Computed example of a mutant assay.
Amino acid sequence: MMTRRETLLGAALTSLVLTAPAFAAAADDIGKLPRQKIDLVAPPFVHAHQQATKEGPKVIEFKMVIQEKEVVIDDDGTKFQAMTFNGSMPGPLMVVHQNDYVELTLVNPASNTMPHNIDFHASTGALGGGALTLINPGEQVVLRFKADRTGVFVYHCAPGGNMIPWHVVSGMNGAIMVLPREGLKDRDGKPLHYDRVYYIGEQDMYVPKDESGKYKTYGSPAESYTDTVEVMRKLIPTHEVFNGRVGALTGKNAMTAKVGETVLIVHSQANRDTRPHLIGGHGDYVWETGKFSNPPETNLETWFIRGGSAGAALYTFKQPGVYAYVNHNLIEAVELGATAHFKVDGTWNDDLMKQVSAPGPIPNAPSN
């Protein structure tokens, strides 16, 4: 009997054989394109890139190594068996331009215990690449696809069946940004520019507890599977976090900016709906559905990111201070961990806000 992997790969290979002449012609054309190798960086940071380009399409080479590892996800020391792209939750943000070719080398080291693959929501065909990238420990694969539509898109592991949600909520998700070649624009076609870009990946986690209510620990992802699935099926996360753990983007790890700088915030959630909100700020321009071919909405207080998608928002900071960036389901923000901070340097503008009088006793208040 054929395994599921053999069935998937067999169907994909049949498709490739049936269209071999077209693929050969395309390969010849792609072979003439310039190639650029990009070293990915861990979120919330993003690798260097041009916002607009007059150059023609390229083949952009990326490499990601799948890491299965134990991580700590809160200040109480809760341990979690994570599965990750490149060791981070979320995986790195990839940036290309429309009509570039993404060429990813995906590596599953022999030290891992599980098969993995990758499904790009930005790609077309073969289960988003999932049917062509399923690899066992000790294997690697190279996938190439054309980034033919602009926007920010989720990618995630999708090895099949009930393995799919388990791998996704164990950390195997990230995003890719496909910029228009001419750069971002407002609804009137005016160019938009950002001084900094940060990538926030929101993650729901489902950590089993023992009979006494304490979080359980496991020696490997496979060992945690049965208990974790039981928690997952109740659809109530134990943690809802940004970038892999409670407080990952607060305190000394807060994202930084200066008054007058415009920041692009890319926000993804591969599994659950979320509602980003910048306390004390706004979304000057927001691609709520994450697709740059659609005009951005303006001046949003809170925006909606559908589960399984990514969105993008531009904001120019006007006041210094610490801004909380939260999931405005405030229960998830405060109780479960979905809070980040921006630390902004600059000079305060009294015209925008001023404390007219300091806290003090109520004048002429009757005494008790």
Rank of each mutant, 00 (worst) to 15 (best):
H121D: 12
N136D: 15
D75H: 10
L179H: 05
H121G: 09
D119S: 14
K190T: 13
A126R: 09
P180V: 04
T84E: 05
T105Y: 09
P165W: 08
Y198W: 08
A126P: 06
K190M: 13
R149E: 12
Y101T: 06
L104C: 04
N112F: 01
N117W: 03
G87N: 02
N117E: 09
E70P: 03
D148S: 14
Q81E: 10
P115T: 07
G213R: 02
D188V: 13
A126G: 07
M177D: 04
M163L: 15
D186R: 11
K185Y: 13
P92Q: 07
E182S: 12
L93P: 05
M94H: 11
G130K: 03
N99G: 07
T113F: 10
Q81S: 08
Y155G: 02
P92R: 05
G201Y: 04
T84Y: 01
P92M: 00
Y199C: 07
Y155T: 04
H121M: 14
H97Q: 10
N108I: 06
V154S: 09
V178K: 08
M205I: 09
A131M: 11
Y194T: 07
W166E: 05
Q203W: 07
F153W: 14
I73C: 05
V141Q: 10
S88R: 01
G77S: 00
E103G: 09
L127Q: 13
T124L: 14
P159C: 08
Y155S: 03
E211M: 06
H121W: 11
V169R: 02
K146N: 14
H121E: 12
D186H: 09
G130I: 00
G161I: 08
E182T: 13
G77V: 00
F153Q: 03
I118N: 00
K185N: 10
V96R: 03
N86K: 08
A122F: 01
D148F: 04
S88M: 06
N162I: 15
M83T: 03
H97C: 05
Y199T: 01
M94D: 05
G189F: 12
P180M: 04
H97F: 01
V141G: 06
A122Q: 04
H193E: 13
R187H: 14
D76A: 10
P159Q: 04
A110Q: 15
Y206N: 02
P191N: 14
I73Q: 00
G151H: 00
N173Q: 14
P208V: 05
A147T: 10
N173K: 12
A158V: 12
Y198F: 09
L132Q: 09
E182G: 11
N108M: 10
H97R: 11
D100Y: 07
A175V: 02
L127M: 15
V168C: 05
F120D: 00
P137Q: 11
S111L: 11
L179V: 09
G125W: 06
W166N: 07
C157T: 11
D100P: 11
H156E: 15
L184G: 02
S170F: 03
Y198R: 05
W166V: 06
N162R: 14
L127W: 12
V141D: 01
H193S: 14
G138S: 07
M205Y: 06
M89L: 15
Y194E: 13
G161D: 15
D74Q: 02
D195C: 11
D75Y: 09
